[in-house]
Amino acid sequence: MEMVKQVTSKNTSVITELLKQNQYVFVSGKQMTALLKTNVDQVIRFRNCWNHLERDQYMADGGTYRYRRYGQFVKLPHTSEITMLCHEPYVQPAYINSLNGDIERHFEPLTDRFVTSPILERLLQLMSDIYDGAEGKATKWNIRLHPYRIVADDLEWGQPTPEGLHRDGVTYIASMMINRTNVEGGETTLTDADKNELETLTLERSFDIVMANDEKTMHQVSPIRPENSDKCAYRDVLVIAFTKMED
C-alpha cells in the first residue's frame, strides 16, 4: 500500500489521488489530527460520546457485543453547509446485508454533543472535499454516520462485521478509529469487487482512517478478543457512508 506521507489542510490532493488510483486510502491518526486541527479538550469530548451508545437489539446472530447510534445529513455542492436530516429507521436490503437486511432498525439518534462537535464538522467537510475531488466535481451527498462500540470478553468475542466480507451499497465508505482498549484482532481487510485481497491493515490509533470506494471494493474486520482476559475489551469506531444524490 502506498502511504500518505505528507498532507496539509490546504492540500489534500494526495489523498484524493490515492483514493482514485487504488480505490482506497489509509490516513494515519497523526495526519488526521493535523488536518482536523483538534485540541486535547475537543478530542476527549468527542471520544466520550462513545460512552453513550445503546446496545444494538437487532443482531440476527443473537450477539450482545455491539452498541451504536445513527443519524444522517445532507451536504450540498458549492457550499460548506451540512444539514442534519430527520431521524429515520435504518434499512439495508438483504442482498447488501445478509445478516440484518430487509428490516427497519430503529436506532437511537446521535447525541447533541456528538452532532455539535467541531471535530465532526471538520471531518465531514474534509471528506466532502476529498470525495468531490475523486468525483471530479462538487457533489450533493447523503452522509450516514454510525458510531459503533464493539465489546468482547472471555464469553463472547466481538464481531465488527458480523455479515462478513461485504459492501454497504453506498458510494464511499470510511472507518475511523476512535479508541481501542485491551483488544487483540480487529484487522481490516479490503478486497476488489471480485474478492481479491488488496490490503489487510489494523486501525490502531485514534483517528486512523481508511476510506474506500464502496462500489469497487469490499471489506471486513476480523473478530476482537481481550488481550487481558481479566478485563473487557472494546473497539470504538465511526463508520461514515457518503452516497451521491441527484441534484
Rank of each mutant, 00 (worst) to 15 (best):
G133I: 12
N100H: 09
Q57M: 07
V40T: 14
D61E: 06
V115T: 15
H87T: 04
I96N: 06
A138T: 05
R113A: 12
C86A: 13
Q57L: 10
E135F: 14
I150N: 00
D153G: 13
W157N: 10
Q72T: 11
M59A: 09
R68C: 10
R66L: 05
N142L: 15
V151D: 06
K37P: 00
R105A: 04
G62F: 02
N97P: 00
R144V: 05
N51E: 11
V40L: 13
G164L: 09
A134D: 11
T79V: 08
C86N: 15
L85R: 08
T79P: 02
C49N: 15
M127K: 13
Y58D: 04
H52C: 00
R68P: 01
H166I: 00
T79I: 03
V43C: 10
N97R: 04
E156A: 14
R113F: 08
A94W: 04
W141E: 04
H166Q: 00
Q159L: 14
L165A: 10
L155P: 00
Q42A: 12
L124K: 11
D56S: 01
R55F: 01
H52R: 09
K137R: 13
H78D: 12
H106M: 03
E108C: 09
E121S: 12
T116C: 09
K140R: 15
R69K: 10
Q92R: 13
N97Y: 05
P109Q: 00
L124N: 11
T38R: 08
L124Q: 12
H166C: 02
D168N: 15
E156V: 11
N100R: 07
L123T: 14
P162L: 05
C86K: 12
P162W: 03
P160H: 09
K37R: 15
S98W: 00
Q72N: 11
T38D: 07
P89A: 14
L53C: 03
N39K: 12
P160S: 05
S117D: 10
E81L: 15
L123E: 10
R144Q: 14
F107I: 02
I143N: 10
V40G: 01
Y95C: 07
M32G: 04
D153I: 07
R55G: 00
I130E: 11
S80E: 13
Y58G: 03
L123D: 05
L76P: 00
I150K: 00
V151I: 13
P160N: 03
W141R: 05
D102C: 05
